[in-house]
């Protein structure tokens, strides 16, 4: 198993900062979407639709730096960047960061850090969605929602995580493989 060296640490941090910049850039989109949906009591849906972008640092770091812990560290550092850049959610950002990262890390753990293809991404999508959703059941009181609405939220989140953390990550990975910087 590969170990962490200074180069990998710098790389994962740069990727996290880059993702932090992206998180920061979509902040206004999130606020507008949330404001548009809020009157109908659908504000959480804005969160679900965009969640995939927020959890992308995990699978991306996991794919580029194939060392155990890369996904968790990437997502956690992304959260740290977001927090210090002026994100307002404070400590809960860090907790979410660890959970989102660990969620996608689980996908890599289940495949033993050996396979880097669709199967791992699908696993990672599923575990990320389940872990983060369980956290929102507690943190944001999702547990109090009626079941049909809860299922809708879950499906939208699964789809969003799959599109950004799965499909987009895979496409980026394909480009990197074609450029011979990553092995298939």
């Amino acid at each position: 198993m590969k170990r962490w060296h200074i180069r990998d640490i710098i790389l994962v941090t740069i990727i996290a900062i880059f993702m932090g910049v992206i998180f920061w850039a979509i902040g206004p989109v999130y606020t507008i979407l949330a404001a548009a949906l809020a009157p109908f009591g659908l504000q959480p849906l804005a969160n679900e639709l965009l969640l995939g972008i927020w959890v992308m640092a995990g699978p991306l770091a996991g794919f580029v730096i194939r060392i155990p812990g890369a996904a968790t560290l990437g997502e956690l550092l992304g959260a740290v960047v977001e927090m210090f850049l002026g994100g307002i959610w404070g400590a809960s950002t860090l907790i979410s960061g660890v959970l989102q990262g660990f969620g996608s890390e689980l996908g890599f753990i289940f495949t033993g850090y050996k396979r880097y293809g669709w199967f791992t991404l699908a696993m990672s999508t599923l575990t990320t969605t389940i872990v983060t959703f369980a956290w929102d059941l507690i943190r944001n009181g999702y547990a109090a929602y009626h079941l049909p609405f809860l299922l809708l939220l879950f499906c939208v989140r699964l789809l969003s995580v799959f599109v950004f953390g799965g499909v987009l990550t895979k496409l980026i990975n394909n480009l990197l493989v074609r450029a011979h910087v990553l092995k298939d």
Binding site: A38, L42, F149
Partner: peptide, 18 residues
């Protein structure tokens, strides 16, 4: 947070039984 907390509470009132 005033906006987000209010929107979440409103949503929980409309779509849930808290």
């Amino acid at each position: 947070p005033l906006f987000f907390a209010s929107a979440l509470v409103w949503s929980l009132m409309l779509r849930g039984d808290a």
